[in-house]
Design a protein around this nucleic acid. Structure first.
Lengths: 189, 189
DNA sequence: TTGACAAGTGGAGATGACCTCCATATTTTC
DNA sequence: GAAAATATGGAGGTCATCTCCACTTGTCAA
């Protein structure tokens, strides 16, 4: 699956360039105002090149998403290594909200693009899911968190938070969801 | 906003017909394999008629969603009238999961179609939000639920549940989310 | 270096979905 | 029952998407 044949130097350069430009345009929230062909021109490549690297808008989104996930996973590992399990989990979830808040356009664009191909999202976020699962499992081992609730439920809640980015009081409600989840996790059976 | 001028009899009939057919196709999950023009033919009307009633796929989704919301709100009122507040809230949320589970294709299609125009979703689900807010408020009055968490957070969690309908263990995780929310809502000591 | 082959590029143009438009048909009104 | 108002349907224009291939660029062995 990750058996990517080594790309030729210029191809790799173009690919990176496209992803970088995509992240930029996503974050600005301008992606849907743009013809896909025009995005190619904006990135300085021909349409053929764009389509060879990313056959669809969704494929491009997936690549960007991959980068996001990798960064978040690094953060999860760092927290897990430096804090008690329960605090690490809480810090991670709170930080996730901060992150989404700071990149509203990106979050919104990714959510929109992956809405129909949610399978792709699940695919891309497998690593993130693993990170969350690890954080929860560690907290369970510490006895800080109940063991009868699947970590997948936390993923779902996060999903809801990032998918609902247009609600008027998004930030406050997102924080409340995290509060509910954390308090709900703490409560013994 | 709801100041709809009375539609001519045949127009009303066609409109209802389109919504009914849409619900059917949504639920079967076949909507995205269909050209919008072909959907018109499938429903037995011309493309012009389809476009006059519903200028976009999203507009059609919104109409279907409206019906769903109305049914759910009725259920909320019924529960609220017949059960203690906390139980009504729990029953409503659990029932919501049942409902989504029973209409997977519909939920998925609606979620996809409204992903970009989430504003429209918020618009259409105002009534649903009000119902949830009422249920929560009643439970707060009973002292069964904390008062420092906004009902919007519950909406967000529900949003996550319906948006994540492709997860392998969806049903179990959805139930867990509800558990977390309900337990989280009970006053922390 | 150089030649030769592999790999990648870009953009013109085919394709096909979306939506508009209006001559015709149906309801409603008086 | 005739005129006015309202709604219909589908032919065809428009425009974003994606394919295709003649050409350029990179790689590698000698």
């Amino acid at each position: 699956m990750t058996a990517d044949k080594p790309l030729r130097a210029d191809a790799q350069r173009n690919r990176d360039l496209l992803i970088a430009k995509a992240r930029e345009v996503f974050d600005a929230g301008d992606f849907f105002d743009l013809r896909f062909d025009d995005f190619a021109r904006l990135a300085g490549v021909g349409t053929g090149t764009l389509y060879r690297h990313f056959p669809t808008r969704e494929a491009l989104a997936e690549a960007v998403y991959h980068g996001e996930v990798a960064a978040l996973c690094d953060r999860a590992r760092l927290l897990q290594a430096t804090l008690p399990a329960a605090e690490a989990l809480a810090a991670f979830l709170r930080g996730m909200v901060d992150h989404i808040d700071a990149h509203e356009g990106l979050a919104r664009t990714l959510a929109t693009l992956m809405a129909d191909r949610a399978g792709a999202l699940a695919e891309g976020s497998r690593a993130l899911e693993q990170a969350v699962t690890d954080l929860v499992a560690a907290a369970v081992r510490d006895g800080a968190v109940r063991d009868d609730v699947d970590a997948g439920a936390v993923m779902m809640a996060l999903h809801g938070i990032s998918a609902a980015h247009d609600r008027p009081c998004w930030r406050a409600e997102a924080d409340d969801v995290i509060t509910l989840v954390l308090d709900g996790l703490r409560r013994p059976l």
